[in-house]
Design a protein around this nucleic acid. Sequence first.
DNA 1: GTTATAAGTGTGTTTTTTACATTTCCAAAT
DNA 2: ATTTGGAAATGTAAAAAACACACTTATAAC
Lengths: 229, 229
Amino acid sequence: MLNNYNTEDKVLLAVDCIIFGFDNEELKILLIKRDFEPEKGKWSLMGGFLKNHETLDNAANRILHHLTGFHNIYMEQLYSFSKVDRDPVDRTISVAYYALINIEDHNEELIEKYSAKWFNISEAPSLIFDHDIMVEHAIRRLRHRTSTKPVGFELLPEKFTMRQLQKLYEAILDEKLDKRNFINKINALDILHKLDEKDMNSSRKGSFLYQFDKEKYDKKVLDGFTFKL
Amino acid sequence: MLNNYNTEDKVLLAVDCIIFGFDNEELKILLIKRDFEPEKGKWSLMGGFLKNHETLDNAANRILHHLTGFHNIYMEQLYSFSKVDRDPVDRTISVAYYALINIEDHNEELIEKYSAKWFNISEAPSLIFDHDIMVEHAIRRLRHRTSTKPVGFELLPEKFTMRQLQKLYEAILDEKLDKRNFINKINALDILHKLDEKDMNSSRKGSFLYQFDKEKYDKKVLDGFTFKL
DNA sequence: GTTATAAGTGTGTTTTTTACATTTCCAAAT
DNA sequence: ATTTGGAAATGTAAAAAACACACTTATAAC
C-alpha cells in the first residue's frame, strides 16, 4: 500500500514577519502599508509566500532582506496560524516569524519603497487578517526570550550605555526597573565588555559604553552558564 | 495592482503528533509502525495531512482521535519543519504538535490497528524523516511547560499520590527531586484536593490520593497567581 | 568657580531555595 | 496478640537570591 499524496489538499504557505526595533525610548514594530488587494491601503506585517525550493527560515530571511537590506538578522519562528478564512482570497496558512533589528540600520530607501513605518507597539494601528494576534504572540515571546537569552543586544547599536540597556529592558517588559539592581545583575552576568569610551550626549558627566562579548558568553554557556535576568 | 496568488507555489501541509504518556516510572511516547511507503515498516510519529476545511488544531485533534479514540486531549502546537527534502515523495511542510494523555486510557484496539507501541523516551527507536528532531523539541517544550503550567496532571489518572506526581516530574525533568521539598512546594501552590481515600498498593501504610482542583487553579490564575515549580 | 544634570555606587532586609533525619502507620508474618 | 518491614509523612535551620533604598561624583555650560 502506498500512501497517495495526490489526493491530499495543498495550501499556500505564507511567512509573516514581526520586526521589532528600539529607539532608546520605546519598543517599535515595522509595518507596511499594503499597495495591493485585498485590504489595500491597510497596515500589515511584511510577508510573502514560501517557494518550493526554500525552507521557512529561508523565506523569512528573504522577506526580511527585502524590507531591511540586511542578511543575518536575528529571527525566530513563532507560530503557525491556520484559521480557514484568515485570508479571504485563498486558503493560506501563515507561519509567523519575529525579528530584532537595530533601528539605526533601517534603510530609508526600502522603507519608502514599501511605504513602511515604525510604530510604538502601544500606538500601532490595527492590522489586516490575524496579524494583530501574531504581534501579541510575538511580544509575549520576546518578553520571555529577553529574560532567558541575551537577545536584547540585537536591538541596540554595537556600543551602548547601561542606561540604554535598562531602557530597552523596561520597554520590552513594560515595567520600571531599579537602576542599581539592574546594573548589579548585568555585571554579575559578566558578559559585557566595558569600553574606555564614553557617550557624552546623555549627560555632562558622560556615561561609559559597553559591548556584548559574544565569545565570552558562548564560552560560559558551554560551561553550563544560563542567562537569567 | 492585485497580488496574484495563482503564481505562488502550493505545498502539502502535514501535522505530526508527539504523544506523551507516563507509566508511573518513565516518560513514554506512542509511535506507529508505518504500513505504507515510503519508509514502510519503520517507526514514526502519528501524522496526517491538513484538509482545506480544517485548522491545524482541528487536524491535530483528528489525528489524535484516530489513534487514541479520545477527544479533548491536551495538545499544543510545537513548531513547523520545512527542510526542502524532508519528505522524499513530495514537498511537505510539517507542523508538529505534542499531546499528553493518561496512559491508562490507551485503547488497545486502536493501538493494534496502527501497530502502535509505547516506548520509554530513552529507548525509542530512531524515526523516519525529521521526526527525531521533532521529539527532541517536544521534550524540551514539555520540560519547560511542566515547570510553568500544571500540565503534568494530564499525564496522570484523575486520582494520584504525591509519590506518583513526584515520579512524573522526575521522569520529565530527568533529575531526582527531594521528597520533602517537592511536597512542600506542591502544597504551597494550593491547587490540589487531598482525598480521604488512600492508595493501598504502594505500601502497608497506604498513601493519600490527591486530585487536581482545576476550578481553584483557574480562580487563582485570575487573581494573578502563576504556577511555578 | 558655580551650577545643573545624569552617572555611578553598596548595604541591610526579606524572600526563596536548599539540605537534611526521624517518626508513623498498617498489613503481613509469626 | 505481638513483632516486623517498608513506604508515608512531616519541619527547621542555613544559604542564596531578590529587593528596597539615597547620596556622591564627574563634567559641560554658563
